[in-house]
Design a binder for these strands. Structure first.
Lengths: 136, 136
DNA sequence: GTAGATCATAAGCGCCTGCATATGATTGCG
DNA sequence: CGCAATCATATGCAGGCGCTTATGATCTAC
């Protein structure tokens, strides 16, 4: 493989740029980064336990609780005790949560699309495909 | 642009994987993440001031000092007062620093190449090219 | 030569993170 | 029945981060 900068040295600054740009977007909608991550996970695939959710989004299972508390009190998610196993809280996104998640995503997507527009179309496709492939 | 996960949601986990894999490699050579970053910067392009170095690697100019202290006392870099402007410390990598940097890079590169080998060659090239392009 | 800018450095702030541990409710196994 | 495992939750700790402010040395411009 040819000479190239370290992968991490390429990716890390890019992630920082994204976070810097997307933090204000999230703030506009009064959602935290983790909150948005939770909404996204719940909107895409239903998750049963909170531990499973934490695992799915790469968060700490004890630290995720505050996030869930916020989302719940803002009416964006619901936590209902599972009748079949009352230790478990079934997590679901509310209509309001879905609405907010989609609004946030739209803004974020617009920003990211602009960023990606620097790339020629073929590279952009290959780039996104590669990123997905590298997610194992 | 077609449906896709958020860029950040793709990149962030990947960065975490890289950090998790590369931290032990760095530890083997007794260098911190920031230390390696400094060595890399100094090995590639000479930098005059510490502020410029911090800027170049995206570090905080006040936080970088401890890193420089460590590197210096390990004999990996030198800080010599600039005779032309004695406020400034000229930074340079030592032979030992260069040796260590290259050893670390070799291990990191081996890991990354293995990771990238999941991708078809054409995608891999486009992926790396895209990453560089997105660095502004 | 004096004032203001620049550089390296130190120290403190609030925030977030990963990690460990504890507790209380509940389940399921033997 | 009783014990161990599981789940949600609370809490504490150490470490790192970005950011800010202060200090002392030195330079530059006037």
């Amino acid at each position: 493989m040819e000479e190239r900068p370290d992968l991490a040295a390429l990716l890390y600054p890019l992630v920082r740029v994204l976070i810097a740009a997307e933090t204000p977007i999230l703030a506009t909608h009064d959602v935290s980064m983790w909150g948005y991550s939770v909404l996204t996970a719940l909107d895409e695939t239903p998750v049963r336990t909170q531990a499973a959710l934490a695992e799915a989004i790469g968060a700490d299972k004890s630290r995720i609780i505050g996030t869930l508390d916020e989302l719940q009190s803002a009416g964006l998610i619901e936590r209902t005790p599972d009748p079949d196993d009352r230790r478990v809280r079934l997590l679901s996104i509310t209509a309001k949560g879905r609405r907010i998640r989609r609004a946030v995503r739209k803004s974020i997507r617009a920003y990211e699309d602009e960023l990606l527009s620097k790339l020629p179309a073929a590279d952009r496709t290959a780039f996104l495909r590669s990123l997905r492939a590298l997610q194992q």
